[in-house]
Design a protein around this nucleic acid. Structure first.
Lengths: 204, 204
DNA sequence: GTCTATAGGAAGATAGAC
DNA sequence: GTCTATCTTCCTATAGAC
């Protein structure tokens, strides 16, 4: 692995562990056993490292959000949500200090907003599809509010868990997926609702 | 107003506007037209100011959370939620950089966790009360998950709005209260559900 | 209580040798 | 590409005069 790439992976790990504002360029260099000068040979400054990591994140989350063109079966929805949660977990640092990080980087703020909107649109698409099939019983307006709750929960679940339960653990993501699914639950047709409840219990 | 108190109010305003990590002691002093030396005469350091502000917050939110001893009518629930949102808005800075702020102050992390738990207990109490009256149709387990969603939404609503809609505005809090209420909506008995929907429309 | 001046330290970033 | 050395800037916090 080239140094440039190693810097990015090391930084990502440190950002996630300590929070972006608490990580210095010296720390990154130390962790990798290279000199700060070397780090600055590869990146003009800390912002440029952050920027590149954001590109990674944007690409990964974008690819997942492209998927739901076709209608999703019950199990596919779990998988879809799980994939989203996994990417969020991999780029936790962005979410944990969201306002702070975005306030110091105008351009990222806009791009992040677009991703949130994409997520909302994707969940609305899935829900409206279910509604047309008669599986989900909700008006368009109800779906909009519901999807806002879905995206909000997905966005902050890991932070919330960290604050409430202390450290994050293996089941954190599963619990998050479950929490989101329960938001949809009451709107489902009885048959699918029972089915989802069973899946939820198996899942946790 | 004494200098010590003025420092606290100025700091609170700056923290909310710029984020706690971005505010320096020099900035606080500048904003008040006093010298940094004077500031350090009143407070040992920045942490001590934060600490005192957290005391304020803890007291204010605590007083509201004491209230729901008796069962709440529909309108009282809106009011209760609104009061909670108002306190959160007044101490926004805590919520906007939650993981970051708490990670640098162990003691605050514990106290904040306790407040979150208190909030969860309070909403569970209200919901179980409604369930006993037959107004809310949900099992104890469903109520637990629901209340987790309620508290999560209340905790992060303002941050989420800031990220999604750009700057915060007058209707932000109202929309937050509405968003939380819609979480409860599908579990309500038809009569109360329709009533709540109407109130929601009037409210926004 | 309040000021000015300043010590002390941490972090970002650069220059120049190898 | 990588290192060492160093500059600058910014921030916390203190000392000592008024």
């Amino acid at each position: 692995m080239k140094t440039r790439e190693r810097i990015l992976f090391t930084t990502l790990a440190l950002f996630n562990e300590c929070g972006e504002p608490n990580v210095t360029t010296l720390q990154i260099a130390d962790e990798m056993d290279i000199s700060p000068g070397n780090l600055y040979y590869h990146f003009k400054n800390k912002t440029e490292i952050l920027s590149e990591l954001f590109n990674w994140y944007e690409k990964e989350i974008g690819e997942i959000l492209e998927v739901p063109e076709t209608s999703l079966t019950g199990e596919d929805q779990w998988l879809f949500l799980h994939l989203i949660f996994e990417v969020i977990a991999r780029y936790q640092f962005l979410y944990q200090d969201l306002v702070n990080v975005l306030s110091r980087h105008d351009k990222l703020a806009n791009r992040f907003r677009k991703i949130i909107n994409k997520k909302t649109k994707a969940s609305e698409k899935i829900c409206k599809n279910l509604a047309e099939q008669g599986i989900l019983n909700a008006s368009d307006k109800e779906i909009e509010t519901l999807c806002k709750s879905i995206v909000l929960t997905a966005t902050y679940w890991i932070s919330f868990s960290t604050v409430v339960d202390g450290k994050e653990c293996d089941s954190t993501l599963n619990k998050g997926v479950y929490q989101v699914m329960t938001l949809v639950l009451p709107y489902l047709r009885e048959e699918e609702r029972e089915q989802l409840k069973e899946m939820g219990e198996a899942y946790l």
